[in-house]
Amino acid sequence: MSEGAGRQGIALSERQKIAWLRLIRSDNVGPVTFRDLINHFGTAEAALEMLPELSRRGGAVRSIRIASHADAEREMELAHRHGAAFVGIGEPDYPPFLRKIDGAPPLLAIKGNRAAAGDVAVGIVGSRNASIAGAKFAGMLARDLGASGYVVVSGLARGIDTAAHRASLATGTIAALAGGLDQPYPPENIGLLDEITSGNGLAVSEMPFGWEPRARDFPRRNRLIAGIGLGLVVVEAASRSGSLITARNAADFGRLVFAVPGSPLDPRAHGTNALLKDGAIVTTDASDVLEALAPLREPNLFHSHSHADEPAAEHDHMALPPDDSERERIASALGPTPVEIDEIIRHTELAAATVYLVLLELDLAGRLHRHAGGLVSIATD
Rank of each mutant, 00 (worst) to 15 (best):
G4F: 09
E14G: 04
R15K: 14
N28A: 09
V32D: 01
T33A: 13
L37C: 10
H40P: 01
E53W: 02
V61Y: 03
S63C: 04
S63A: 13
I64V: 12
I66K: 05
A72L: 03
E77A: 12
A79H: 08
H82W: 03
G90E: 14
G90T: 15
Y94V: 09
Y94W: 11
K100F: 01
P106S: 09
L108W: 15
K111D: 12
A116L: 00
G123I: 04
V125A: 07
I132G: 02
I132T: 10
A135E: 11
K136Y: 02
G149L: 11
Y150W: 07
A163R: 12
T173L: 04
T173C: 13
A175D: 03
A176W: 04
E188G: 05
G191P: 03
L193E: 03
V204Y: 09
S205E: 00
F209N: 05
P213F: 05
P213L: 04
D217W: 13
P219Q: 12
P219A: 11
L224T: 15
G227I: 08
V235P: 00
A247K: 04
N249C: 05
G254P: 07
V257M: 08
S263M: 13
G271E: 13
A280T: 03
S287N: 05
D288H: 15
H305I: 14
A312W: 04
E314Q: 14
H315P: 05
P322H: 14
P322Q: 14
S332L: 07
T337M: 00
T337D: 07
I345H: 12
L350I: 14
A353C: 04
L359C: 01
L368H: 11
H371S: 13
A379N: 11
